[in-house]
Simulated scan of single mutants.
Amino acid sequence: MIKIVRGNPTPEELAAALAVVQARAAASAAAAQGEGTPPEWSDPARTVPARRVPHPGPRAWRTTYWPS
Results as ranks from 00 to 15, higher is better:
V5A: 09
P56D: 08
T63F: 08
Q33Y: 01
M1Y: 12
G7L: 03
R51F: 01
E12Y: 04
P54G: 03
R24W: 02
D43T: 06
W61M: 10
D43I: 01
P67Q: 02
R6Y: 06
R46G: 03
V20N: 10
T64I: 07
T63I: 00
R24A: 05
K3Y: 06
A30I: 01
I4Y: 02
A29P: 02
L14H: 10
G7E: 03
P58H: 07
P11Y: 01
E35D: 11
N8F: 05
A50C: 05
A27Y: 04
K3Q: 15
P44S: 06
T47N: 12
R46V: 05
A26F: 02
A17W: 02
L18H: 06
A29D: 07
A25D: 11
I2E: 12
R46H: 09
R62D: 07
A17D: 05
S42N: 11
P9R: 09
K3V: 10
L14Q: 14
P11T: 12
R51A: 09
E40S: 11
A27E: 08
V21Y: 09
R6F: 00
P49D: 02
A45S: 13
R62E: 08
A25I: 08
E12F: 03
P9G: 02
E13W: 03
S68E: 12
E12C: 00
P11F: 00
Y65N: 12
A27Q: 14
A27L: 10
T63Q: 09
S68V: 01
T47P: 00
R62T: 09
T37V: 11
L18V: 09
E40C: 00
D43N: 15
R59W: 08
R51T: 12
W61V: 08
P49T: 04
H55I: 05
V5R: 15
R62H: 11
V21Q: 15
P39S: 04
Q33N: 10
V21I: 14
A60C: 05
L14M: 14
G57F: 01
R6H: 10
R6P: 00
R52T: 13
V48G: 01
A31V: 05
E40I: 06
A16Q: 15
S42C: 06
A16N: 13
R52A: 05
A19D: 12
I2L: 12
A29N: 08
P67R: 07
A29W: 03
P44K: 10
Q22L: 03
L14V: 06
Q22S: 13
H55Q: 15
I4A: 04
T47W: 10
P67W: 00
A19G: 10
S42V: 10
V53M: 07
A17K: 13
W66E: 12
P44Y: 03
V21R: 15
